[in-house]
């Protein structure tokens, strides 16, 4: 099943073309890495795929729904899409568990259930023991785990990660990739990962290179899955 599908998507900012006709599909259980030099359109692609931005032309579908027809994009994002960024955006005055609960509570889930989900999501990423701690009391790797738990809570199927290993050492970065990988293999999530580091891109099933807003040979690097 295709979780996210982009068809001939373009994005122009005034007269600047950030993305020039990109088509890409990510099925459930697949990790796709997007690489390319600065300014090649990587983050634009990710923002469009997650409904944070709307395309100038072309279409974006998440779990079969064309985003052009969705009025409340924010609600769809909260239900279906999880984001992990380099600067983690954890709220400093909330504990790890409360950070994970927040988007669910915004979505109208009752506090008690949101907490149960948060604890489960933290356990899935191996961070249950830090549930009661504040972000500043966590290591970089733990914070990123919490951010991933927040992105996963509520069974969201699409995970978008923009340089999630940015500030981490390579051993911790590998752990984060192992975690993202297991979300695909075990939970059937679709993950779209933007990275400029080849060592992390190599965890993906498929590596896509962007060049001046266009895909330079999509699926050129495609390993047959062991699954």
């Amino acid at each position: 099943m295709t979780v996210v599908r982009l068809r001939e998507v373009t994005r122009e900012h005034g007269r600047v073309r950030a993305l020039g006709g990109v088509s890409l599909e990510v099925p459930a259980g697949e990790l796709v890495a997007v690489m390319g030099p600065s300014g090649s359109g990587k983050s634009t692609l990710l923002n469009l795929a997650g409904g944070l931005d709307r395309p100038t032309s072309g279409s974006v579908e998440i779990e079969g729904r064309d985003l052009a027809g969705v009025r409340d994009l924010a609600a769809l994002r909260r239900r279906s899409v999880g984001y992990v960024f380099q600067d983690l955006n954890l709220i400093p005055s909330l504990t790890a568990a409360e950070n994970v609960m927040l988007p669910r509570e915004l979505d109208g889930v009752r506090s008690r259930q949101a907490r149960t989900e948060a604890v489960a999501a933290l356990a899935e990423v191996g961070a249950e023991e830090v549930a009661g701690r504040f972000p500043e009391e966590l290591s970089g790797g733990q914070r990123q785990r919490v951010a991933i738990a927040r992105a996963l809570a509520g069974e969201r199927r699409l995970l978008l990660a923009d340089e999630p290993t940015g500030a981490l050492d390579t051993a911790t970065g590998d752990e984060i990739l192992r975690l993202l990988r297991s979300r695909c293999d075990d939970a059937g999530a679709a993950v779209l990962l933007v990275t400029h580091e080849p060592r992390y891109a190599a965890w993906a099933d498929r590596v896509v290179y962007l060049r001046d807003g266009l895909i330079a040979e999509a699926g050129g690097v495609h390993l047959e899955s062991a699954r």
């Binding site: 080849p198 891109a201 190599a202 390993l223 062991a226």
Partner: peptide, 20 residues
């Protein structure tokens, strides 16, 4: 360069797989 990059990425994927 692109041809080489693809080949090296494939090797990198195989190594990562072996590491896992």
């Amino acid at each position: 360069i692109h041809t080489q990059r693809m080949a090296t990425m494939r090797a990198l994927q195989a190594l990562t797989r072996a590491k896992r």
